[in-house]
């Protein structure tokens, strides 16, 4: 089940430096098709850096990233989206002065299949009905929870084969967090492959099949969600580094 060489996506000995700081010290992980994998760890552990380097925003100093059998560590960000990796970033990073509709449109900017784009927009409205209501409103005027839904929808509009999610619960009211995770569960049921960064360990492990726990730029633990839910060391990894 977990043979890295057959995985849809894998990261091998990934190292990322910011000047003298080694933010990632050679991590390896993989995600199989249809799997949801959680990436956990304390603040500053390197979770966002991992996702950003997958999307080509930070370049690895060594190691490699493979997607669908191809190395993508030197590929441009826009090409990575075209290959099928979409990224819903930490803090949502919507285009606040553009409308909901325009944000969704830019989410699909790498696609040319008009009919597919229209169908996917409808799918997004079915998944997140509030976006239909707010269609012509500026994204910057939405509430935190609404913005998070738009951020997810914008990423999904790229019709990805792999969805990277960075803290979808950040700045979202508790009731809406439940709602967003219900939507993610529905996406999983439909077969979407996801790599999920999340501070809420319990929610993340309930959704994910497997998880990796990062600690100061290295994989400290990994295993199935059931194993990790009952493992004290997961909580310790959070206490360990701040």
């Amino acid at each position: 089940m977990s043979d890295p060489s057959k995985a849809l996506f894998s990261v091998q000995n990934l190292e990322v430096r910011f000047g003298a700081v080694r933010a990632l010290k050679g991590i390896s992980l993989h995600v199989n098709k249809g799997e949801v994998v959680a990436l956990l760890g304390a603040n500053g552990a390197g979770k966002s850096t991992t996702l950003r380097s997958i999307s080509g925003l930070s370049r690895p100093s060594s190691g490699d990233i493979f997607f669908a059998g191809q190395s993508i560590s030197r590929v441009s960000s826009s090409q990575i989206v075209r290959l099928g990796i979409a990224h819903s970033p930490e803090g949502r990073r919507l285009f606040g002065s553009l409308t909901v509709a325009e944000n969704l449109r830019l989410g699909s900017c790498t696609r040319t299949d008009k009919a597919g784009i229209i169908a996917d927009t409808e799918r997004m409205f079915a998944l997140f009905p509030i976006l239909r209501e707010r269609h012509f409103q500026l994204a910057g005027t939405l509430s935190g929870g609404e913005q998070q839904q738009l951020a997810l929808a914008r990423a999904l509009m790229a019709a990805p084969k792999l969805l990277l999610l960075d803290e979808p619960s950040l700045g979202v009211a508790p009731l809406l967090i439940k709602y967003i995770f219900a939507a993610l569960t529905e996406l999983k049921r439909q077969g979407m492959t996801m790599l999920l960064v999340e501070q809420n360990i319990k929610l993340a492990l309930q959704l994910a099949d497997r998880a990796y726990v990062l600690r100061t730029g290295a994989v400290a633990l990994s295993g199935s969600s059931e194993e990790l839910l009952s493992d004290d060391r997961v909580a310790q990894a959070y206490l360990g580094a701040a």
């Binding site: 999307s55 080509g56 925003l57 441009s76 960000s77 826009s78 990575i80 989206v81 075209r82 979409a86 990224h87 970033p89 990073r93 919507l94 285009f95 606040g96 002065s97 553009l98 325009e102 449109r105 830019l106 989410g107 900017c109 790498t110 914008r154 990423a155 790229a158």
Partner: peptide
């Protein structure tokens, strides 16, 4: 136009523009 919207998006947040796949 997508190009024009993309230009405004890039003015607002260059990294986010890259993440949606705009060719900066």
């Amino acid at each position: 136009t997508t190009l024009g919207l993309g230009m405004r998006a890039a003015s607002e947040d260059m990294s986010a523009a890259q993440l949606v796949g705009l060719d900066v």
